[in-house]
């Protein structure tokens, strides 16, 4: 068959050699960032969800300072006695006022302004506490207490993260489709450029699959080259952003660092792009050759 023994019958695809690997590299770069971003977002939201689901906040909203303090003490006592609660810490009035300073401004708060008592409650990971039941028990000893288990915020965060992951997935799909489109266009240009040679090969008895292999080999190489370049650029970008995130020392961004799955995905991506490029070229060649006699 044609192409055996490493012999090539078609000249190098000069029309594709220059531009195509660059285009593939750009598309792979975008896809790699989207893959890494989506996976890192998944890891981060999982981490945030775990952290926040183990932490409740109780607010005692009462205008009268004496009743507020009394209810806060009762709430702390009750919460401490609940099995599964690992720590209960009521913030001092000064700490609570310090939390409000960024919104109200330093020194602008009147000492007469009632500030709720905030109680930070840590729950054991294995505990299966029902926030609704705890709320009922709190109502009995501290009617002004409000328990926030962050469920609403977590649901909103989950929905937003889901939308971002969907967007990342869409970017990956669009990038790969664009790569296929460019490869298909380039392959057709290559077929046009080599039309006379292909006709001769056909007339000498070469089969479509043999001519297709000539293109497959070329485009596999282009795909691998572009894929590796794109992923290399993406790795550099992700490493740089990861370093910046670590410097922020933020608990929120702490989870936004690439894990093993991200690196594994980035390692596989150039191969996937190369195979996709090769398969697109093969499909394009076979469809085009079907028009020949």
């Amino acid at each position: 068959m044609i192409g055996r023994g490493g012999y090539r019958f078609l000249p190098d695809g000069r029309e594709a050699r220059g531009v195509l690997p660059w285009v593939i590299a750009i598309m792979t770069f975008l896809a790699a960032l989207a893959v890494a971003g989506g996976l890192m977002l998944y890891d981060a939201t999982s981490q945030w969800r775990t952290t926040l689901s183990r932490s409740w906040t109780v607010q005692v909203v009462e205008a009268d300072p004496a009743r507020r303090e009394a209810q806060a003490r009762a709430a702390v006592k009750l919460l401490t006695e609940i099995d599964g609660v690992t720590s209960v810490r009521a913030l001092s009035d000064a700490d609570a006022r310090a939390l409000l300073e960024p919104w109200l401004g330093a020194g602008s708060m009147s000492s007469d302004l009632p500030v709720p008592v905030l109680i930070d409650v840590a729950v054991a990971p294995s505990a299966s506490l029902s926030p609704a039941r705890v709320r009922l028990r709190l109502q009995a000893v501290a009617p002004s207490a409000r328990l926030d288990d962050h469920d609403r915020w977590l649901r909103q965060l989950g929905a937003f993260a889901g939308a971002l992951q969907l967007t990342a997935f869409a970017i990956v799909v669009v990038s790969l489709l664009a790569t296929m489109g460019v490869v298909g266009f380039s392959t057709r240009a290559g077929l046009m450029g080599h039309r006379a040679t292909i006709e001769i090969l056909h007339l000498m008895g070469a089969e479509d699959s043999a001519i297709g292999r000539e293109f497959q080999r070329q485009y596999l190489f282009h795909g691998l080259k572009g894929g590796l370049a794109g992923v290399a650029a993406a790795v550099a970008t992700i490493a740089g952003l990861g370093w910046m995130a670590q410097r922020l020392s933020s608990g929120l961004l702490g989870g936004f660092t690439p894990g093993p799955l991200v690196w594994l995905s980035l390692a596989v991506l150039p191969l996937a792009v190369a195979v996709l490029t090769m398969a697109t070229a093969r499909l394009t060649v076979h469809r085009a050759l079907a028009d020949y006699v």
């Binding site: 044609i2 019958f9 006379a196 070469a206």
Partner: peptide
């Protein structure tokens, strides 16, 4: 209709190579 990118020898060998004859 000779293949411009191949030498004279490679052009002549083309039909047998396509047929899979030993090199």
């Amino acid at each position: 209709r000779l293949l411009a990118h191949l030498s004279a020898l490679d052009n002549v060998m083309l039909p047998l190579r396509i047929a899979g004859a030993p090199e």
